[in-house]
Structure formats: structure tokens, C-alpha cells
């Protein structure tokens, strides 16, 4: 048990923090929602009613989609894009998808390589892109969920202001949808750009995301 926790600490700790923060968001969101309810003369809603509401769903999904977009772009673009001196970049002489030998696939696979890396054909092609593919699909799924929950939350607000609701298609062109979407995208892109650049000159001793403290600023593709 102790060994399991040690060997899986990153996933476990971030998973636990995610749940704690999600519950915190639910309580804070409930307070805001009920303030608006009172403002329109309606009674407070229960915790359960709020966490199953479109308002909570849209707030959650809009953040999920941007996080998965960030990772999707980061995974895909760093195949070709490089950043001299950054531990987030591959070595400067390795842009692109690299050779089968470098990627240990097909006949170059090791004995302990995953089965789909060894078999070749469509299985290896899919497995070779599986990380980006799954991140991209989760991004599209959560962006779609944001649009569905978002239009319901937007229409609830429209009705509370004695205005007509809009269709899903109209909502995709509405300022509210793009405001929610773009405000999340810009922060994710800024975070990636700053991480890639700050990690050239700054160090965090012992972190897998940093170069070793003594590594030169122009050392690229080196992690601590």
C-alpha cells in the first residue's frame, strides 16, 4: 500500500486535490447562484440542485476544455516546435516525428515495449498518436459539453431578465460562448509560453519540469 502510494503519488495527489477543489468550487458557485436567485426574487436552491445545474456544468466544462486544449496543443506542437534552452523542448536536432529506431517501434521495439508499439500496422500508427488523440477528443467533448450546458445557463439568465431564450446554434455565435471560451484559452497559452521560456533561465532543484540547477541556460531537452 505504502509502495503503491509512493509509486503513484503524482496521480493520487492531483486527483485528490482536484476533488477537493471541485467541491470547493461547488460551494462557492452555489453561494453566487443563490445570490442571483435572491436578486430575482426566487428562493435559494439546494446543493444537489446546483451541482446538477447547467450553470455549474458550464463553469466546470469551460475550464476542462481549455486545460485539455492546452495539453493537446503542447503535445502536438512540440513534435515540430523547439525552444532553445527549454526543458519543455526536445533537442534542437530532433524536430518532427523522428525515426522508428529513435521511437523504438516495429522491429526496433525493445522486449518490454508496449505490444501495440511492436506489432506495426494500424495498431502502431494509432498507438503512436494516442496521447494527442485522447487529449484532443477530451478537449472536443468538454468544449461541446460547455456549449450545451452554456446555452442552458445562458437561457436561464435570459428568462430571469424577461428575454427570449436562444437556440444552440445561435449560442455558438453569441458573445457569452466566446467570452467563456477565449478567456480560458488565453490564460492556458500564457502559462505554456511562460513555462517554456522561464524554465530556460530559472531552476527548481529536483523537479522533473526543470533542468538540473547547474545545467547551462542553452542546454535543450534536458530534464532534472
Amino acid at each position: 500500500m505504502k509502495r503503491f502510494v509512493r509509486d503513484n503519488a503524482i496521480g493520487l495527489v492531483f486527483g485528490l486535490l482536484f476533488l477537493i477543489v471541485l467541491i470547493g468550487q461547488a460551494f462557492a458557485g452555489l453561494a453566487v447562484f443563490n445570490e442571483m436567485q435572491r436578486g430575482t426574487g426566487l428562493p435559494d436552491v439546494s446543493f444537489w440542485r446546483y451541482v446538477t445545474s447547467a450553470s455549474f456544468g458550464a463553469d466546470v466544462a469551460e475550464n476542462w476544455q481549455s486545460e485539455y486544449l492546452q495539453f493537446f496543443l503542447f503535445i502536438m506542437l512540440t513534435v515540430w516546435l523547439l525552444q532553445k534552452g527549454s526543458p519543455e523542448s526536445k533537442a534542437l536536432d530532433k524536430p518532427g516525428r523522428e525515426t522508428d529506431e529513435e521511437q523504438k517501434i516495429g522491429r526496433f521495439a525493445d522486449d518490454d515495449s508496449p505490444k501495440w508499439a511492436r506489432t506495426g500496422g494500424w495498431r502502431t500508427r494509432i498507438f503512436s498518436s494516442s496521447l494527442g488523440l485522447v487529449m484532443g477528443l477530451i478537449f472536443l467533448g468538454s468544449w461541446f459539453a460547455q456549449s450545451v450546458a452554456g446555452v442552458a445557463a445562458f437561457n436561464e439568465e435570459q428568462l430571469s431578465e424577461l428575454q427570449d431564450p436562444v437556440s444552440w446554434g445561435q449560442y455558438l455565435l453569441a458573445a457569452d460562448f466566446w467570452d467563456r471560451t477565449l478567456q480560458n484559452w488565453q490564460s492556458e497559452l500564457l502559462a505554456v509560453a511562460s513555462m517554456a521560456i522561464l524554465a530556460i533561465y530559472l531552476r527548481q532543484r529536483g523537479s522533473s519540469q526543470s533542468k538540473p540547477v547547474g545545467a547551462p541556460h542553452d542546454a535543450t531537452g534536458v530534464e532534472g
Binding site: 436567485q37 436561464e156 428568462l159 431564450p165
Partner: peptide, 9 residues
Amino acid sequence: TSVYGQWAQ
């Protein structure tokens, strides 16, 4: 009739 959350029209 349209129903969204706590509101209806």
C-alpha cells in the same frame, strides 16, 4: 414552452 433551470417562459 421553454424551461431552463429555475425559469420558464
